[in-house]
Write a protein that binds this DNA or RNA. Structure first.
Lengths: 128, 128
DNA sequence: ATACAAATGCAAACAATAATCATTAGCAGC
DNA sequence: GCTGCTAATGATTATTGTTTGCATTTGTAT
């Protein structure tokens, strides 16, 4: 038997927070955003709910940027640009990817395309 | 002044180990492989050298699979298939990717295409 | 051979995340 | 509205991959 999902205002707030930004935040950031308005929020709750969202597909993980897992509430397939310097993650339209033959390997569920580089802000900083 | 790179048999062994496999290993795996033949090898040395290889581009990082950073000594551009279940990483020929316009974002240095799914071995296990 | 800095082993430090456990609070049935 | 069950939570601790500090070893230029 699977667990019944029960309503929780905190879970709602966490998901709303994720959906309100395009900064592809980490758990800590979400926590910092909500803490002022929900003073008794625990970081553990953020992690627990993020794990749930991940399971049921309401959020996806961009990957690990500078040691932190970054989340995205936009589940439409799209690519990302990650600045190796400051960790900024920007959205890009999904590139058309020529799917290689993966039949021999297993069942392919998803595809992620990530472009790495140095964002303009960091390029400026380096010049100075 | 930049540091002079000095010869080290351990560094050589670590790189050789990485080059001898296509399993895209984690640091711990490399350590376990070499420990028998180099009993006084320290895990810290493996990490330190991996960081160096990464800096000078002799290895690339596939990403974080099940909490472990996975390395690849094949630096030719290619894609990967990662099994979400067992963490196996397989090589794929580089898919042709239609590069979106990233000029407004910054300088793009590299691109990584990863396919996620469930490998045949894990699919079998689930059936049973 | 000598000197100097790079490389290392070891252990302790770190940091992000997960787990534990006692408490709180949805919500279904009465 | 109560009651009972159990999901959700807060606070704290544990876990674990990785990094760092420091004393020692070792490569190498002179």
């Amino acid at each position: 038997m699977e667990k019944v999902r029960r309503y929780s205002p905190k879970r709602e707030a966490i998901l709303a927070c994720l959906r309100s930004t395009d900064s592809h935040p980490a758990a800590e950031w979400v926590y910092a955003q909500l803490k002022p308005s929900i003073p008794d929020l625990s970081l553990a709750t953020v992690y627990r709910n993020l794990a749930q969202f991940r399971q049921d597909g309401s959020v996806t993980v961009i990957g690990n940027v500078n040691g932190e897992e970054r989340y995205d509430a936009d589940t439409h397939p799209h690519s990302h640009f990650i600045c190796r310097s400051c960790g900024k993650v920007a959205d890009l339209p999904m590139s058309r990817v020529e799917m290689p033959d993966t039949a021999a390997l297993g069942r392919t569920d998803s595809c992620s395309v990530t472009f790495y580089g140095c964002c303009n802000a960091c390029l400026e900083k380096k010049k100075a």
